[in-house]
Design a protein around this nucleic acid. Sequence first.
DNA 1: CCGGTTCGGATCAAC
DNA 2: TCCGAACCGG
Length: 796
Amino acid sequence: MTNYLEELNESQRDAVLYNEGPSLVIAGAGSGKTRVLTYKIAYLLEQGYTPWSILALTFTNKAAREMKERIARQVGDQARYLWMGTFHSIFSRILRCEAQVIGFSSNFTIYDSSDSKSLIKSIVKEMQLDDKTYKSGLIQARISNAKNHLVFPDAYVSNAELYQYDLNAKVPATRDIYRQYWERCRQSDAMDFDDLLLYTYMLFRDHPEICRKYAEQFRYVLVDEYQDTNFAQHSIVLQLTQEHQRVCVVGDDAQSIYSFRGANIDNILKFTQLYKGAKLFKLEQNYRSTQTIVCAANSLIEKNSEQIKKEVFSEKAKGEPIGVFNAYSDVEEGEIVANQIVKLRSREHYSYNDFAILYRTNAQSRIFEEALRKRSLPYKIYGGLSFYQRKEIKDVISYFRLAVNPNDEEAFKRVLNYPARGIGDTTLNKVIDAAAQHHVSLWMVLEEPLAYGLNINKGMHTKLQGFRELVKSFIVEIPKKNAYELGAMIVRQSGIMNEIYQSNDPENLSRQENIEELINGMHDFCAIREEEGNENILLTDFLSEVSLLTDQDNEKEEDAEKITLMTIHSAKGLEFKNVFVVGLEENLFPSALSLNSYKELEEERRLFYVAITRAEEHCYLSFAKSRFKYGKMEFSSPSRFLKDIDVHFLKLPQEEQMARRIDERASRFCREQNERASRFLFDESASQPSYGRSSSNLSGGQKSFFVGERPKAEIIRPSVPRNLTKVGLATVSKPSAAGTLPVNVLAGQVIEHERFGIGDVIKVEGTGENSKATVRFRNAGEKQLLLKFARFKVVE
DNA sequence: CCGGTTCGGATCAAC
DNA sequence: TCCGAACCGG
């Protein structure tokens, strides 16, 4: 074991070295949680664990990727073989292997939430229910919540309590919709996000031999952000580890901010009861923030009732108090923040990268954009409409999906008449009816319209046949072409390319760019994998990867300095020297929707805690007295959370300060009264059915706030793995390493790789076509490169 | 069946 | 402000 243990403090070291049984690491904000996890994995590898016997689960792809890179720096290329990824991606991998056992094919589609929403919508329509009462978002939330609690359709139907709840909510048919939705997904060979968990659980539950197989393979299981696991995730971890008990979970109950998608804080609170003899480690030293920031955050989170006791402290400088800005309007709030950035930057020579503006909702970003643009300050926005949610991308991907799995109902509906080929709603509805009647997929009806009694005329038959042949012509190419080649072919032959390249109005232009970016991304996707020695990267492989990517997953390294704008949720796990938390107003933060239960309000407070603890040196809070909402000016009052922070750590505006001092005692009294009252009124969110923590995701699907043209600003979006080389749609050639001749490279040389950067060549094996180099990259760890594909140049 | 326009409704975070 | 469902004329 090496020197890196010396880089850890005592409690971190204890947590890394203890591997004899289950352990829970409570890691305060900025306390080196990732460091502990990476070192622990490195340590396990040194102790003789093989990489594929270690399972590490995270919440974002980004977290997994970063951790993998850090581990690779410690232990080299073997990091590549770790089972490290999000719950969803790891489980989808397992499910694709074992799909047959549970009645799916290994090419099953993953429905994103807009797919599920749309399916629910059509089911509601088919059942002739009123879609004003049965709102798709609401039903989706109910179903999702059930799945997160491992409630299968049968159990839902027979659960009196759930039925009563739905009855009270005037949606008694929810259980029928759930059942129907379940069947339709199966018919379509599709799983939604929640299914990836639910079916994994079911697989392990119903097939103990399979469960045992994985439990034995994963000799050690680690879970990051354990406070954000839901019951399903928690149960699967238990399935895998209850035999051998080699499990380590890491988290911070104070940073649990995802109960709206089923996260259950009890999982972490009760861990030590569930795993008898589990060791508890607490990481309490914050290495990120000034003492003032840490103390302010502590004083805030103290106001929450449920938490594991811990004392986070910092030994860094005391730092400046947290600045509070009081603006008259949302526009002025933007001005103030922008001015403060300019001021700070000139005073202390920060880079633009050192600034982040964090808000509760994406919609708030606009005002700040304008203020920053006015001063020519560079910025980047995370979030908004993700790349894969864009219409043109969803269209193209739907064709991909249909080729890989023609039973995919949502993909089918989406492209049956896009580009327009004269098959309208009337016909589609006939197909849907026939399919429902015979319990088959839409595609099966399309294959044998007569057998399923499809009542359409001759002309329509021909049109349907045309579509059928089109899709089939893609299907036959799947094994013959790689993902990139087939992707480019589909874009052209489906007619999408014609449609979009017809005119060059700005809207089409951006669509063209997006589609080209997708295709370029596919090119790189293939190239990278081929470089690493894999052959035949099929469309299937591409699809299974991209369906789980999100806005957070951009691989692109920023070269230019930019101010970061993002929601607090996306900021989790990040840190910045200077943080502005904006929009601290009642009904915005805390959100109006969180005010009906005590638990939700506490979650909002934890969210605020997360926001503040992102800051290393300076933290500012701001609010506006008026703000445009839905096109109307609305007045707002300062957030109650401002009063939760001990006034000693704040620098209030002058007049506020006076007022605050005077009535501090009075307000504390009021606050206590209010809290007592709200605890009483909303205790335990009594209206929820037994399994239900308040999930209240009434909206469900993603809404875009950023549609249309955005001036200049760079929107960070999920990478279709970024383009290294521009490959136009017109030039479809085999990416055989862009035709470069095998480069002669020798051990000891230094190379510069397009993606991995500078690295030392350690050894070269094989000859000609198959020669392979092992390279230790300075930033990307050790990699094996197949020279016939690798793109790099020799530096010295 | 198609494409354009109008109207009304939602209104949060995201794997 | 935004988006999508509903409506209507070709």
